[in-house]
């Protein structure tokens, strides 16, 4: 969850900085965009790797739980659903946290560099689109990151999962 929040806040910081700078009338804002895209792409890749890694550890810690559930009659798809729905919840919370953090960061930066006016004159629809976009992105990231670990968890042979001692 923390890794999702962090990457989304990074993403939001970059994206909203642009919006605010344009509204503050910085002519250079547009020219930095391609550079921003690069940073975002790197941020996305890093966060996918982070999330997958975090989820793999989470799956590993829950081997016995998974074995128990299979013992109680869980199908592979029940285990898969469990991890996917957790990822959706975590993606949403992480995304929202990252959004709030990122927006606060750029707001503070904008107020310091360009004053309150720039903040207030920032186009609302753009910020809204940014917010929705980043939460959606966060959901996609955490779902994308959890797919392999969840698949792995669902395919665990029950006996091996039960014998596992963390």
């Amino acid at each position: 969850m923390a890794s999702i929040a962090l990457s989304i806040s990074f993403f939001v910081t970059l994206a909203s900085l642009d919006t605010f700078q344009q509204s503050a009338g910085f002519p250079g804002a547009l020219s930095t965009e391609s550079y921003h895209y690069w940073m975002m792409t790197v941020a996305l890749i890093v966060s996918i790797v982070c999330i997958t890694n975090t989820m793999l550890i989470a799956v590993y810690e829950r081997y016995r739980e998974i074995g128990t559930m299979k013992c109680l009659g869980a199908l592979d798809r029940h285990i898969l659903m469990l991890f996917l729905s957790e990822a959706i919840i975590e993606g949403f919370i992480g995304g929202a946290a990252g959004l709030i953090f990122g927006l606060s960061l750029t707001s503070i930066y904008t107020v310091i560099t360009s004053g309150f006016g720039a903040l207030l004159s920032a186009p609302g629809h753009k910020l809204l689109a940014l917010s929705l976009g980043s939460i959606l992105l966060s959901l996609c990231l955490s779902l994308g990151g959890v797919l392999y670990p969840a698949y792995k968890a669902s395919r665990l042979p029950p006996v091996e999962a039960l014998r596992f001692e963390p």
Partner: peptide, 24 residues
């Protein structure tokens, strides 16, 4: 098959462990 085995474990058999194995 896997589906029928899960059905068996689900409906026909109840498993009790030494270590309880509740979901925390």
């Amino acid at each position: 098959d896997a589906y029928e085995l899960a059905w068996l474990r689900c409906r026909k058999i109840g498993y009790i462990f030494q270590t309880f194995n509740l979901i925390p």
